[in-house]
Design a protein around this nucleic acid. Sequence first.
DNA 1: GCCGTTTTCGGCCCGACTGTTTTCAGTCG
Length: 564
Amino acid sequence: MTNAEIVDRLELTGRLMELHDYDAFKIRAFSSAAFNLDKSTADLANLPVEELVKLPGVGKSVAHKIREIVETGHLTDLDNLLAETPEGVMEMFRIKGLGAKKIRTLWHELGIDNLRDLQLAGENGQIAKIKGFGASTQEKILNSLMFLQEQKGKVRMDRAAMLANVLHDELANHFKRVDITGQVRRKAQEVDTIQLLIETSDPVGAQRYLNGLPMLVQNEQESSPFAWRGRMEGSDVGIELLMFPADQIDRQLFIQTAAEPHLQQVGSANVSLLQAALTVPNASEEGIYERAGLPFIVPEMREDEFAFRWASHHQNDELVTWDDLRGTLHNHSTWSDGKQSIADMAAYCRELGLTYFGIADHSKTATYANGLDVDRVRAQHAEIDQLNAQFGDDFTIFKGIESDILGDGSLDYDDATLATFDYVVASVHQTLTMTIEKATTRLLRAIENPYTTILGHPTGRLLLAREGYPIDHRAVIDACAYHNVVVEINASPYRLDIDWRWIDYAMERGVMLSINPDAHDLAGLLDMHYGVAVGRKGGLTKTMTFNALTLTEMKAYLQKRKKR
DNA sequence: GCCGTTTTCGGCCCGACTGTTTTCAGTCG
């Protein structure tokens, strides 16, 4: 039982108590316990009640609930609440703008207990008529429903990779060769089908074996003699297992990895040569591109015609790799909402072979995240100075901040305070509903601020959960070029923002991109792998990667920029 | 339900923003 699983159950209990109109302070106790424990590094599953009650937000009652969760895997209170709540009502929590109170009203006043009825009520204008609701809320609900429908059956790349690896390892026990291909190999940020190639000369026997695996649930209608289709137990995302004899696997690896537009592009480039290349036995991927007279395209980039435009003036070895990264710049610590101390985060960075660690905790407006007021900024800088004094010339902690971009585009500290940082990541965290004009103007103002070093998660999107605010990407990137601002590739698999499709335009305009993990704990630093993946997808070169600068280069860059 | 004492019960309580109000409830990060 992990901390996250315990926290999720407490959080859900609080939310359902609110839905069922429990006492507000009792609800608060559960949510605040969840909120506090989410940031805890204690091993909750192995703490006795007397230790649990010492943790902030945990009293006797919650401590016993935690023990119950750990020992039985269940929480009776939660099970009872769930039994009283229709599944469709639970799904309504995924609608943006709907919280427990509004859902309760919709459920009790209109009898809505599923998303289909919610949509009908919205389309009929019934929602706008309820007291406390209006036309605007109704429209927001309908928009959110539409967004959710588009995301159905998809998972983020981190979960897709995890599931694909589990499946790969299981199948590799039985089959001679198994390859992950399709969207996962292409490093798609969202995946609707996890696809694997299986080498076999006995597809009938292979199907029989697959259907005997408890982790797989077949969709018989979708399947065929050479293609097993279905899903994994406990997951909605589609699974496709394609069976081929040994001499066809490499060629299929090429065909199945490529997105349709990429295949078409290869075909239209030279149909006859490609056909010839594809019919050669044991054709390798390199051989296929070579025989078709085309440059080799790395798997990540096999989406559309962009790859060939990129390849016309770049070499594959220019693409950024994990080993090119020299440091990391957007990270949180226990000073705001991170789980680990600056010292522990920095130590882990050194273990990873990085040479600098930039701390960019939340700024004062982000009160929910324990953002730093001016006094705490000073105190944090003193701590960083002390830590830096212990390092040699080979490692440095930089003093950064993730300063909130306020509604009018200004940053949330005065210039004197901003001047005390080595660098500033400027990010939007509130007022996410804006027109494209307003959102763009707001970002442009933040970019114009002489203290802004990096523009953080430019659209604020959360993959599969929230559309970002609309922005004029060209105008924003052009402004970054003019004002010498770096653009973040937020590497959290929840964000991956800026989208990889804009990387090439940024590079063209001379704008560097920073692969920023937005890490809130040690493991979060490894999210830079996802940033590298989407960076490569967008053709990001090592030379245009901000955090591929060496420590000496980074120090010089930040110093020079401060003097402007 | 948690906390912190005025040590056994009273007070707890992010703030900005939105949309709905006409003074505020609900949501969000």
